[in-house]
Structure formats: structure tokens, C-alpha cells
Nucleic acid binder design. Structure first.
Lengths: 128, 128
DNA sequence: CTCGACCTTTGAGCGCGCTCCAAGTCAAGC
DNA sequence: GCTTGACTTGGAGCGCGCTCAAAGGTCGAG
């Protein structure tokens, strides 16, 4: 029977390293310990993969590991934490949008600088 | 005569800490050592402030300190490095845009999740 | 003249997020 | 049976970007 991916295969699919997957598990970012084959090797099922994908989305948008863990804690607690989970996600969303706006503003200034260099180097028409 | 801001004033204006300003200077991110008052205290002039503002824009858009230093090195070298500077900035711009796109994509998935929670908690109309 | 705020330098320390290493276990192929 | 290679654990190490501490100098107000 096919009861899941090896840690190497899961890491590959998720764009992480096996070390990172073990680290996440040890650090409480997963909902429960990953299942093991008879050999003691980890086996990642679809459920695990979906959850870790969400973890990587949170991480890739800048959520700190401790906050991902808080979110995982809430999910693990189960029914009754939905409002807290929603608030956590909305707060994160707010921060991400603010961060995006800030980066875009700074990038605009850098673009301006690029324009100045480009004009100077590639030759500006009509100047003396 | 007014020959510049103290390190505390400069830090305040730039949104950094005095420690960070000293660190940047020691690490080669500034074009030249900051001028000193007779007492040995640093004095930040408009030129310094403008440069450091650019540094913070590069940093805030995710450029690593070592790359900011490479850029500073090029500016310090002077005439003849303009093409290299332009390339460095354009390469950075490319990376920032890619990063923005990735974050936006992940955020979209998180938004979707938020929608699911919101529907479930705040009550979805018309469902059984 | 003293006080307190602010500055100086050198160098250590820290939080984050992995990343790597050593020593050992296990399964499959030859 | 032996080798090979992927896996296991525990714990150390690391690169980044600051951040702080210690010990001392400067300066203006009272």
C-alpha cells in the first residue's frame, strides 16, 4: 500500500529541504507528528502536504515561525478557535499589504534612479 | 555654524538607530566616513542623509547588506562604473518584482482561506 | 564645578531560520 | 552476508543584521 511520500519526496514537492521539514515538525508547526513507516521513516500524506503548503504560504509572505506555530496551535485546539484563527490571518494580511505598499514605494524611488542612470548612459536626446 | 545633524537626530530622521548608522559606516555602506565635530562626534550633512536614504530604500526592498556595499563601492570608484551600477539596480529591481509577484500569489491563497473562515463564522446565507 | 545627557570605541551577544554533522538503523540489491 | 544509500536522532554551527554593554570623553545648564 502507498501510505505517503518519503521526506525527500515531500521536500522536493514542497520546495523545502528534508532538514526544514524535520525542523518544522520539531518546532510545532505541524498539526501532529508525521506518520511513520515500519522502519521509523516519515511518510507524508496528502493531509500533511496540504497543511505544509499553507505553512509555506504563510512563511513566504513573511509570517514569523512563532506566529505560524500560534496558528497551528489554534487549529490543533479545534472547534472554538475559528474566530481567533480568522483574526490572526486578517492581521497577517493587513501587515503583508502594508509591507507590499512600502516595498512598492521604495521601488518607485529606485526606478527613478534607474531612469536617471539609463538616461545618462544610453544617451538622452535633445540635451546639450 | 550648522554643519549637520548629530547621530541621534540623523537616526531619528531616517528611521534608524544610532547603532545602525555606526554599523553601516563601519561596514562600508557609506560613501565616506561621516564628518566629525571638534569633539569627535559625527555630524550628518544633507549629502549623507540623501545617500543613507537610498541605502534604506535598497535595504527595505530586500537588498542584502553585502550588495548595498558593492553598490557603494561602485559609486565610490566614480566615473566608469555607471553601467555596472545600472545593471546592479536593474537586477535588484527584477528580483523585487519577482518577490512581489510571489507574495501576491501566496496572499491570494491566504485570502481565499480567510474567505472560508469568514463565511463559516459570520454565517453564510442560503446554505443548509 | 558638578551633573546629566549624549557621544565615542571595541567587542560581545542575540534572535531568526535554518543547515550541517555524527553516529546509528534499516531495506534492497548483488 | 555485505554494501549502498536513504533515513533516524540530537545537537552544534552559521550567516544575517543588527543590538547592547562597558568604559570613557564632551558639553551645556545650573
Amino acid at each position: 500500500m502507498t501510505d505517503g511520500l518519503t521526506i525527500a519526496a515531500a521536500a522536493e514537492r514542497l520546495g523545502l529541504t528534508p532538514d526544514t521539514l524535520r525542523y518544522y515538525e520539531k518546532d510545532g508547526l505541524l498539526l501532529r507528528p508525521v506518520a511513520r513507516a515500519a522502519s521509523g521513516h516519515r511518510r507524508y500524506g496528502p493531509h500533511d502536504l496540504r497543511w505544509i503548503e499553507l505553512v509555506t504560504r504563510l512563511r513566504s509572505t513573511g509570517m514569523a515561525i512563532r506566529d505560524v506555530r500560534r496558528y497551528a496551535d489554534l487549529v490543533r485546539e479545534g472547534v472554538g478557535t475559528e474566530v481567533a484563527r480568522l483574526e490572526l490571518l486578517r492581521e497577517h494580511r493587513r501587515k503583508v499589504l502594508a509591507q507590499l505598499a512600502e516595498v512598492q514605494e521604495h521601488l518607485g524611488a529606485i526606478d527613478h534612479k534607474i531612469g536617471i542612470y539609463a538616461d545618462a548612459i544610453e544617451g538622452r536626446e535633445g540635451a546639450a
